[in-house]
Amino acid sequence: MRSSIRFLAAASFAALSLVSGAAMAEDKIVIGTEGAYPPFNELKKDGTLVGFDIDIAKALCEEMKASCTFVTNDWDGIIPALQAKKFDAIIASMSITPERLQKVDFSAKYYNTPPAIAVPKDSPLKDASPESLKGKTLGAQGSTTHANYAEKHLNAAELKIYPTADEYKLDVAAGRIDGVVDDIVVLTEWVKSAEGACCKILAPLPVDEEINGKGAGIAVRKGDTELADKFTKAIAGIRASGKYKEIQDKYFDFDVYGK
């Protein structure tokens, strides 16, 4: 019943949709996110987007007095989609890294958490040192800082790259890979949930600023500094007004903004 109505809606936007130039104007911003990275952003089964990123984005838009719409896009195509103007900004826990800065511009960070490594509960791994990782296989999501980190610092192990976090979770649960590298918050939430019952956090990993960047920021098209500055200002605004803390406390019991 619900699906049939959605089908009609989908069929009607199958016509080439001409979004008017107003989308570029200041009061309307289209925000791209992934929707598969709980607890930061997650597309629920009923089609609603929830998560820390989403709440922050809504608060920022309110602060900027802009009306925002959300679009989900697969992670590995999210920067090309931004460049192709499918949306104006990415709020999807994207770390500000030198590599990405060559292609997009960023606002200031809106949170910063370190990476970690998670392994199955019965794993023989004791630590994340090169000696113990030798001959093991690690998983990470593609196009992420975590994949790059594993490639540089954990290169004693073989690295497998997955399109979404859900897929490496399936594979580590199945025992195909010996561990996964991702954001510590994401992994902590996951091992707490029923799906992550297979696994535990082995250790947080030391941050390499060259790779992990200076925290997660809001990506905009190269040269769109005006929008980036607005977001930066709005982040400072919600931090000052207490709105940030309110959202943070809803999800976490620690400070995600970092020092």
Binding site: D76, P80, Q83, R100, Q102, N148, K160, I161, P163
Partner: peptide, 20 residues
Amino acid sequence: AIVTVFDLMGETRYAFSRTF
């Protein structure tokens, strides 16, 4: 490439994910 094998397409996706 979608199931993590680094074949020609996998390497392409890898290179793209690093360089955009």
